[in-house]
Design a protein around this nucleic acid. Sequence first.
DNA 1: TTGAAAGCGCTAACAA
DNA 2: TTGTTAGCGCTTTCAA
Lengths: 342, 342
Amino acid sequence: MTMREKRVTIEQVANQAGVSIATVSNYLNRKYSSMSETTKERIAAVVQQLSYRPNVLAQGLKGNKSRTIAVVVVNIGYPFCVSIIRALSTIFAQQDYRLLVCETGEDGEREKKILESLLAQQVEAIVVQATGENNRLLGQIAQQMPVVLVDREYPVSNATQVVTNNVESSAALTGTLFDTGYEEVIYVTENVNGVSTRASRLAGYQRACSEHGKQPTLGWVDRHQPSTFASLVAQLANRRATTPFAIYTANGLIMQELYPLLNALGRKVPMEMGLATFDNPDWAKLLTPPLTAVSQPTTEIGEFCAHTIIGLLKGENTPSGSQKKVLDSTVLLQASTDLRQV
Amino acid sequence: MTMREKRVTIEQVANQAGVSIATVSNYLNRKYSSMSETTKERIAAVVQQLSYRPNVLAQGLKGNKSRTIAVVVVNIGYPFCVSIIRALSTIFAQQDYRLLVCETGEDGEREKKILESLLAQQVEAIVVQATGENNRLLGQIAQQMPVVLVDREYPVSNATQVVTNNVESSAALTGTLFDTGYEEVIYVTENVNGVSTRASRLAGYQRACSEHGKQPTLGWVDRHQPSTFASLVAQLANRRATTPFAIYTANGLIMQELYPLLNALGRKVPMEMGLATFDNPDWAKLLTPPLTAVSQPTTEIGEFCAHTIIGLLKGENTPSGSQKKVLDSTVLLQASTDLRQV
DNA sequence: TTGAAAGCGCTAACAA
DNA sequence: TTGTTAGCGCTTTCAA
């Protein structure tokens, strides 16, 4: 490939159209207020012919506007993140904003690097599913541009928060499991580790337990250590098969790991063992029986973030202090926790 | 939030450090060849103190380098695309390149807009899972920067192609199903519609049929029209249960839609009905029984694209003409097509 | 109705 | 070893 063929510039357009650079610029920015039809047409023709496109970098340098928004998530592959990214991408594309996608891998250092790089990149706003290790930095950034914390809550001044009602929906699911007839609900989670969603879901579970006069039972796993799953399941294997219990996992990824192992136990679902998970991965309805889940309104979350930012960006009205939006998840009961069935 | 606080510029750093702008620039670009320790230290201190970060837009304007790569996929949510994006993102992040993610939704017009916008954005390279409707435009772009066509093959001059051996792996899977003992393999696909992967997988299926002296049976569905799935399954319901047949879907998304309907038929899998799919979605192993699948080396594909681009970008050695790389998929046999089992 | 000219923040010759 | 200067391509006053 023959690289670096000189790109067409506004100057060439101006020359060829026989007008000044400024006039072309005005034309491009639709400042037609007073511009002869002939000029317009002439410029249009040349733009067409040269297939000229203004250099976004140059435009940005002048006005400090990059027309770029960044989204920073823990893992680009998580269904939750994918869904958020899709929503943002769709809306921003319509508004002629570009979307920069970054991934922290739950690593605070990496997150810091990313945020600094975004600053250098002159992005106009940031949506971030934060690790919680850079709250101060995020606060500073939020003084310069819109920052939206999504999914996880942290004390960051000037940032907008968009979260779901984790405590309530977790409690609702747990309560339903007890009401359905499970004597015991075993909650399987990762180390909370400062992550607000994990803390909230756990709290919701615990609240429901105490409300139902039940003892909480926790199973701890680490997704990066398969042995933690194995030993949890080994414990379960030793149980008497008399009282039916339910397994409730704190997110879909845990269930994804755990499920094959649970299956190998040979316990009948849902009669001997109920199965439920937070998150509603697209495979939940493919399992036999289909899996009870808490479905988060991911598309709405993404859309809300996008609209918030667009609002902030055009209306220069700057709502000081932090805003917080809570969206509601839905409990989807399926056969995997239905004790009434045959 | 108090927007638009003046950002720190190189000039302020220079002033405060008592040196010239050029010296700061040299320092930033590690052109230490001859620079006194004191100067270095002084600049370092000021950079630190002001937490200065060079404006990427300005840097880019000068050298026409945006340090941005774009990836254009059909759908950000498809597991195949997610996997590619992740690989690209990881590698480019390491090299301090940013990744712009765009989505065409299989729409040629939208793809065209995106490509033009990327051109304006001065991206340095493009990875694209193309629709096939902008081959000429892609060819032109490929004269200015590296263009990698991924997944789908089209006649685009100067572009690198990265694909998998769709024909062979599809034939291999089909052949295995026949060998296993299924009298008939029903291939379920979407309209080929000019998409090379669909054509190849279909061709592979047909080849295997003829090699085994079997009649091909095609089921056509449209993912945007649920009724097509329903009517396909209705046909299957009328079959006598005597001869075992297998269903082989052209991709994971089709299987995802089809599976619940097939399940409702009540046919025993794998004895009365075998199930297999192209793609290896992460839920394949969660089904009962686990699903036979053709696993594409998505991570390798992404990595190959990334390395190709990085090579092209630094080594200005310009390999003229198109290159083509074929990576091999793997057939993963699971219980869903295992007729030997009890 | 149009154009000249001054930057935006940075890099890279070339001088000193 | 460091500084001066001329742009990169565009927007935006301010004049003409």
